[in-house]
Computed example of a mutant assay.
Amino acid sequence: MLQKIITRGLSVGVLTILLACSDKGGFSAQSLPGTDNNGSSSTDGGNDNTPVPNEYQKLQYKGFVSGGNNDGSLVIDIDKTANALLIILPLQMNPYIDSAEGEIPDLPGVKFMTYKDDKGASFFAVSVPLRYVLKGASFLNPARLPNGDPLPQVASGELPSLALAVPGKNNVKFHFYIGVNVVGVYVSSPYDPYLPLHFPIRRGVETIGYFHTVPAKSGFDGGFFLNTQMPDSVAAIIDDHFRF
């Protein structure tokens, strides 16, 4: 049973949505798509008392979709105010997505929300504390996609997983996958993307994940899957900073 679920109308502006959620200890303005404020400290050359940013504060981990209708969209970031990995899954013009937010009881601190932008496109955002990203969740049972297919671009084809029904009346389900330095999000609904498309997520020239559309299959709804594999160099900076 989901706890502390709030189903309510949200502003179509991403800024307004995530600012409102930050007051509840969820998402924060620092992790907004399209903003340069990522929670890092900055230095002022005229103030000798300004702290020098450490490697974590200087770390940039922004991932952008490369190709397709969502080309250039920011879908992966680190929220340094909440010390969490932020994943934003595009769901296209999906009429089945209601505005909702909640927290995963089995993974305290993992929060999710759905929202629409000013063009009516739907998104599913997840905030994952960095301790889970670095340590994984081996206590969860491994799973593939709900239709039985292996997870796209995941070496083992499966990861520790759990599934939740997103609040609403439209049979929308959220599947969360997490291994050591690997996080995946799958959202299924009656909306069928029809074609299996795959687009890399780039951090500069580096590929740090993939965005996939999954057509409906054999009685299973279609959906959208996004995963990121955090490079060892990035994980080392985070681990050195927090000592998880």
Score class of each variant (00 low, 15 high):
V166E: 02
V180N: 07
N141T: 15
Y177I: 04
P150L: 15
L140E: 11
L164M: 05
F176T: 07
F176P: 00
L145W: 04
L162Q: 08
I178R: 05
V185E: 03
L164K: 09
A165N: 14
P160E: 09
V172K: 01
N181E: 12
Y191I: 01
F139H: 15
I178S: 04
L162Y: 12
R144Q: 13
N181Q: 14
G157V: 07
P146F: 12
L164R: 10
H175N: 12
S189C: 03
F176Q: 05
G148F: 11
Y177S: 08
V154Q: 01
G148D: 14
N141P: 04
H175L: 07
V183D: 04
Y191D: 02
N141A: 15
L162P: 08
V154C: 05
G157E: 05
G148W: 06
V187C: 05
P167L: 10
L151D: 00
K169V: 13
N171V: 10
Y191M: 11
P190T: 06
A155L: 06
K173N: 14
P167W: 04
V182K: 03
P152V: 10
P160F: 09
F176S: 07
S189I: 00
V185H: 10
P152R: 13
L140A: 13
A163T: 11
N171C: 11
N170P: 08
F176W: 01
V187P: 00
Q153H: 14
H175R: 09
G179D: 09
V180S: 09
K169A: 15
V172M: 02
L159Y: 02
L162S: 05
L151P: 00
P190V: 14
A165L: 09
G179L: 07
N171P: 03
H175G: 04
P190I: 12
A155V: 08
E158W: 03
L145A: 03
S188R: 05
V183Y: 01
P152G: 12
V185C: 14
S189N: 02
Y186L: 08
F176H: 02
N147A: 14
V185W: 06
P167Y: 07
S188G: 11
L140R: 02
N141G: 15
N170C: 06
H175T: 09
N141S: 15
S188Q: 08
N147R: 11
P150W: 11
V182Q: 07
V180H: 12
N141Y: 04
A165P: 09
N147V: 10
Y177V: 00
Y186E: 06
Y177W: 06
V183H: 00
V154K: 03
A137T: 05
G184M: 04
L162T: 06
G168W: 03
N141H: 15
S189Q: 01
V185R: 02
S189V: 00
E158R: 13
S189F: 03
Y186H: 12
R144F: 01
P146T: 06
G179N: 11
V187M: 03
V182T: 08
N170Y: 07
A165F: 15
I178C: 10
P150E: 13
V182D: 01
V183W: 00
N147F: 04
P150I: 15
V180R: 13
A163P: 04
F139A: 15
S138F: 11
A155M: 10
D149A: 15
E158K: 14
N147K: 12
P142D: 10
S138Y: 07
P190M: 14
V185A: 13
V180Y: 11
P150C: 14
G179R: 05
S156W: 07
V182N: 09
L151I: 07
G157C: 03
